[in-house]
Design a protein around this nucleic acid. Structure first.
Lengths: 110, 110
DNA sequence: TTAATTTATTGCAATATTACGATTGATATA
DNA sequence: TATATCAATCGTAATATTGCAATAAATTAA
């Protein structure tokens, strides 16, 4: 029903999926890549860089901020965003642990 | 409008987000973890293992299969699933490249 | 062939996501 | 103060996702 049953999964499984989910949209991937490249904090340049309307970008930024992957800083009329290094590293650790899990070698049907 | 504008993003950005998206649900994370653990291919045991109805599990398996992360093999009346090692490794490479990108150190506003 | 077992598919309801126009709020400048 | 600029929020439309009951399809066993 559009509603994920988070209560039947472990905290770790929910955490992994939440991180993956926020990376699961090309606009957010593009925003993060741009922030990595132009670290000295981009603001509404993102609206021009990526071809989406300002409210849409703002919404994606909000989600990235909500998970802590970016930080925002008001500078006059504009807002400057950049990667939250600590949280990015923490996220990376969680995702790497999941991605690098070892496959038990056994007789296999596939 | 619920419709992602994939055409304005690069193939790489779309690929990353598609992989992330399929990992963006705890049930699919749980399925993958279980397959890693019990490699010798589990079938409808997943329905018992995870607390979701059979059609729901079947749907999640379909998505994982569609992205190539798992393989399915019919064995009598049941179907045996396991990790698609090659594709998993390929996905891992794509995701690691994204996760491990370096942050240019510059004067920073945040 | 019939019945049992297992998985896939269909159909549907509820919720979530994506996108954007219009508006609001905040700050800077004339 | 009035105006301009930029970003956030609101409201809304369209589409996607999640979940399951009911059913279908496939295979095995009796």
């Amino acid at each position: 029903m559009g509603l994920t049953k988070t209560e039947i999964f472990t905290a770790q499984q929910n955490e992994i999926s939440l991180f993956a989910k926020v990376l699961g949209h090309p606009a957010r991937v593009a925003i993060l890549q741009h922030l990595f490249k132009i670290n000295s904090c981009v603001c509404g340049d993102l609206v021009n860089e990526i071809g989406l309307a300002q409210p849409t970008i703002s919404q994606h930024l909000k989600e990235l901020k909500h998970l802590g992957l970016i930080k925002g800083n008001v500078e006059g009329t504009s807002v400057c965003y950049c990667i939250n290094k600590e949280n990015w590293t923490a996220m990376k650790t969680v995702m790497n642990n999941f991605l690098n899990q070892d496959l038990i070698e056994k007789e296999n049907c596939c």
